[in-house]
Design a protein around this nucleic acid. Structure first.
Lengths: 223, 223
DNA sequence: CGCCTATTTGAGCGTCGTCAATCCAGGTGG
DNA sequence: CCACCTGGATTGACGACGCTCAAATAGGCG
C-alpha cells in the first residue's frame, strides 16, 4: 500500500531526511509503506507485537501508557520527523506504550527487515536513527529529573517556558489533561498550579493562550 | 593510551560484541581506547561536554542526576555490555547525568568520529547500538510507568521480583540507598516498604540477602 | 443553539518526604 | 582475631504536597 504519488513525496521537508539523497529517498519510499491516521485513531496498543517502526511525516501523535484504574500516562508528544518503534529490532517484542493520532497524521512504516536494509544502504540513516533515539532517551531522563526534583508548579513553569513563543505569547498545543499527564500530574493539580502562576502575576492564561509577563521570575521558579 | 595486550582482549565475552568478527574487533580496539576506573571514580559529571561514548566491559557503574538540595536520582545501573553516551552524536552536547563506577571498572571509549566509522565499517554495530539505546529507552519508560501507577511498596516488590534468583534466594546488588533512588523513593520510604513486605510474610531480609516466601502474592501486589 | 466534554473549583485525606535519633554492619587497624 | 569506628540503615514523629471524589462552569464541536 505504497500511496506516494512521487517517490520522495514530502520527505525532503522532514528534518529526519535532511541531507539524504533523492535516490535513497526514492528507494526508501519504494520499500516502505505510508499510512494515514484520522484524529483519535490508534496506531498500536500496548501489548501488541511490534512489526514495524515508524517515522511521523505530518500531524501530531502521542505515546502513552493506558491504565484501567486511573488516567493514562502520556510518555511523549510526537511531531513530524520523529521516529519511534526502533524496538522492532528486539525479537518478539511487544509495545509497552500505545500510539494515538492527535491530529490527522501521515507516517512511513518500516519492517525490521526494511530497517536493516535502510541502515546498510543509506549513509547517515543509522546515525539519524541513533540521534533520534538518544534524544528521546534524554527527554525521558529530563522527565524523570523533573518528577524527582520539582514541584507541580515548577514543572508547569518549566513546560510553559519550553513552548515556542511569538513575542510574549505562547500556547498549549494539546489538551491540558494531556499536558498534565505528560508532566506526571492530575488535571486538577495542573489547573491549580497554573492558577498559582497567574495569581503571582507571572503569566496570564485564556484557554490555550498564554501571555508571559515575567520570564525571569518564571525561570527563577524552575530552579 | 591503548592498553590492550591483545587486540580483541576480552571483548568476545561481552554480549554487545557477540557475533562481530575478530577482524572488526581488532580494528575497533585499535581506534578506541580503554580506561580503568577505581571504585567511586567519576567518569563524567553532569554539564560537562560529551566527547566520547562508552561501552562497559567489566564492573558496575551508575548513571545519576546529582542535586545540591536533596539526594541524587539514580537513572540506571550499568553492567558489562551496556553502551552509553550515544548523545556524542548530537553536536555540542553536554552530559545530563553523571557516571560513576560502583566497582572497579574497565570500559572502551569511542569518539564521535570513531563511532561514525565503526557504524560504517562494522556490520551489525549500528543495529546493536540502536537495540541497546532502544532498550534503555524502554527501561526509562518502565520507570515512568512505575512512578505513575504504583505505590512505594509495589515498586519495591517489583524490584525484588526482577532480581536474579537461586532457588528462593535473591540479593540487593547495590546499596539500598541507591536502589531506593532508582525507584524514585527516599531511603526511609524504601526501608518502610520493605518492612511491610516482610511483616506481611512475603519475604524476609537480612542485610542484602532476600528470601522470597510467596512469589505469587508478591506478583499480585505489583498489579 | 445545544449537548458533551474539558476544565475549574472546593473539601478532605493519604502517602510519602523531612528531620532527627538510634541501630547495625562491614571494613580497618591494632 | 577482635574491637573500634564510620557510614549506611532503620525507626519515630510530623507535616505538606498532590490525589481523590464531587460539583459547578466553560468551551468546543456538531
Amino acid at each position: 500500500m505504497n500511496s506516494f504519488t512521487e517517490p520522495e513525496d514530502g520527505l525532503t521537508e522532514i528534518a529526519f531526511f535532511d541531507g539524504i539523497s533523492r535516490t535513497h529517498l526514492a528507494w526508501l519510499t519504494s520499500v516502505s509503506s505510508s499510512q494515514h491516521l484520522r484524529r483519535g485513531e490508534i496506531l498500536f496498543a500496548k501489548g501488541e507485537p511490534v512489526s514495524h517502526m515508524y517515522i511521523l511525516l505530518t500531524g501530531q501523535m502521542k505515546l502513552a501508557i493506558p491504565s484501567e484504574r486511573t488516567q493514562e500516562r502520556v510518555i511523549d508528544f510526537l511531531k513530524p520527523g520523529d521516529a519511534f518503534g526502533e524496538c522492532v529490532l528486539l525479537p518478539g517484542h511487544r509495545w509497552i506504550t500505545s500510539a494515538c493520532a492527535l491530529t490527522p497524521s501521515r507516517l512511513l512504516s518500516l519492517s525490521a527487515q526494511d530497517l536493516g536494509e535502510a541502515i546498510d544502504r543509506i549513509p547517515g540513516f543509522a546515525l539519524r536513527l541513533i540521534s533520534n533515539t538518544s534524544r528521546r532517551c534524554e527527554g525521558l531522563i529530563g522527565d524523570v529529573e523533573s518528577a524527582s526534583f520539582r514541584s507541580a508548579a515548577q514543572r508547569v513553569a518549566e513546560y510553559v517556558l519550553r513552548q515556542p513563543r511569538t513575542g510574549n505569547q505562547a500556547r498549549f498545543a494539546f489538551h491540558k489533561r494531556a499536558i498534565a499527564s505528560k508532566l506526571g500530574l492530575q488535571p486538577e493539580t495542573f489547573s491549580r498550579s497554573l492558577k498559582k502562576l497567574v495569581s503571582d502575576g507571572l503569566i496570564s492564561v485564556q484557554g490555550s493562550r498564554i501571555t508571559i509577563h515575567d520570564e525571569d521570575a518564571l525561570q527563577a521558579i524552575v530552579d
